[in-house]
């Protein structure tokens, strides 16, 4: 497996045609002879600036797919190309470091990216303002609410200045009201920054609410079953009739996939 990691910005003017390209990617776990196939022949492009959600039931290998793309794990077969450099990854848990303040968490990301010391403070403030947490610089992680933590985590991910943002069910642990607000926030920030997003979720409505393209994965092993282009204008609301209609269609297809497992 080859993971192409170029320095961000090194491709200057030559815009690539994709933010990430997975080419016939498979992944198995376990020792040889007793292997379990988790991802089977996944080919997938995310265009620069595109918002794609991956959806599937348990065991579809969604998180594995993100780990492979993030470079935290190696594919068993196939290639993954990320021309924009190391992608940023946001987890379901905020994964902020509790020994640092919100602002320092962001500054650590900037520091590891190589931003000079005197620029880190203002840049962290700018990112906090982007996620509308202007006064939160000195706050400790435990002093923030769940929604605020995920916004700081988003700011920290954006601090990596990566062209690709991977999100692993980042809003799954939040209450419905907060999640709804964060959907609007994410849409706004995606619009403002032009970052490409590959977003994994098991919430169909969330997928339709956010994405330009929804990809359905089957379970055990994960294969791409179907893909929908979401032509609904942003800003959308999760309650919109069009969002509901498409969600019903995708859910039907998802249930079909799940039923197949009961029949085997």
């Amino acid at each position: 497996m080859a993971l192409a990691l170029d320095k961000p910005g090194s491709d200057g003017g030559t815009e690539t045609e994709f933010a990430v390209r997975l080419d016939h990617v498979s992944k198995s776990f376990g020792r040889p002879g007793k292997q379990q196939l988790v991802l089977d022949d996944i080919s997938l492009d995310v265009a620069p600036g595109e918002f794609v959600t991956l959806i599937g039931a348990s065991g579809c290998g969604k998180s594995t797919l993100l780990n492979l793309t993030a470079g935290l794990d190696a594919a068993s077969a196939g290639t993954i190309a990320v021309p924009g450099g190391r992608p940023a990854l946001m987890f379901q848990e905020h994964a902020l470091f509790p020994w640092l303040t919100a602002g320092r968490n962001i500054e650590l990301a900037l520091r590891l990216r190589g931003v000079p010391k005197n620029e880190r403070g203002p840049e962290a403030e700018r990112l906090l303002t982007l996620v509308r947490l202007t006064g939160a610089y000195g706050k400790r992680v435990h002093e923030l609410s769940g929604g605020m933590r995920q916004r700081v985590a988003l700011a920290r991910a954006l601090a990596q200045d990566s062209r690709l943002l991977l999100m692993d069910e980042p809003f799954a642990a939040l209450d419905a009201i907060t999640r709804d607000v964060l959907h609007e926030e994410l849409t706004r920030i995606w619009n403002e920054t032009g970052v490409s997003v590959l977003f994994v979720t098991h919430n169909v409505r969330e997928a339709v609410r956010l994405a330009q393209r929804v990809i359905l994965l089957s379970s055990r092993p994960g294969r791409i079953v179907h893909e929908w282009r979401v032509g609904i204008d942003q800003p959308r609301r999760i309650e919109d009739a069009e969002v509901s209609a498409l969600s019903v269609e995708i859910t039907e297809r998802l249930r079909e996939e799940i039923r197949r497992h009961g029949q085997q």
């Binding site: 935290l72 940023a88 987890f91 902020l96 590891l112 920290r156």
Partner: peptide, 12 residues
């Protein structure tokens, strides 16, 4: 383990 993974993702 999440902290170590997060650290790796940030480039540590």
């Amino acid at each position: 383990p999440l902290y170590l993974r997060a650290g790796r993702m940030l480039g540590a």
